[in-house]
Amino acid sequence: MTTTVGVVVFPGTNCEMDALVAVEHIGGTGRLLWHADDDLAGVDAVILPGGFAHGDYLRPGAIARFSPMMAAVVSFASDGGPVVGICNGFQILTEVGLLPGALQKNQGLKFLCKPTLLRVESTDSVITAQTSVGVELLVPINHFEGNYTCDSETLTRLRDEDRIVLRYVDNPNGSVDDIAGVCNEGRNVVGLMPHPERACDELLGSADGAILVRSLLNAV
C-alpha cells in the first residue's frame, strides 16, 4: 500500500501540481482536494501547497482558513494526522492556529525566489524523520511574506521544545532566529517557507527536498 497524500487546492493555489508530482516521484499517491469540500477522502497525509489562496487578500491565509476543507484538516491534525504546509500553506497553518507565530513581509521588501541552504535542526517531525541534525539541504524559496515572527515567549517555547525543525544557513528574509520551519507540539504538523517539492530531482537543480517528502510518506 502506498501512502496517499491529499493536496488541498484553494482558488489561487499554484503549487498543487508540483506537490502532487513530487509525492508520486517519491513513490506515494497524490490526490487533489478542493477547498470547498469538507471530506479528506481517506488520505493518509495532507499537504497545503504554495500559491496565493484567495488572492492573499487581507493577509496570506486569512480567508483560506475559513474554507470547509480546513475544518477537516484541523480535525485530522488533532487526531495526529501528518499535515505539512509549504509557503502559502505555512501561512494558512499559522492563521488557522495549528502553528504559532505569523509570517510578515520580507525584511528587505523584496520578493525572493532563489535556492537557499537549510540546516536540519530536529529530526523529530513528520518531514525530517529520515534526515539527521546538522544536514544541509539546498531547497528553493519563493515568497514575499516569509519573515517568520512570534513573541519572545513563543520563541523560547519553540527552542525549549525542539520545535524549530529547519533553519536558514544564511537568513534571506529576516525570520526570527533564522527559522525556516516549525512544528506543532504533536510534531505531526509542520510549516516551512521553502519548497521541498521543487527540489526532488537533480534535473531541477537539487534533489535535497526529496528526503523531506520521503519522510512525510513514511510518517504514516
Binding site: 513581509k105 521588501l109 515572527t149 529576516g174
Partner: peptide, 13 residues
C-alpha cells in the same frame, strides 16, 4: 496597524 515591536519594513523604507 502592526503591533509595537513588530518590524515595519515598508514604513522604514
Amino acid at each position: 496597524r502592526l503591533r509595537a515591536g513588530i518590524a515595519d519594513p515598508a514604513g522604514a523604507t
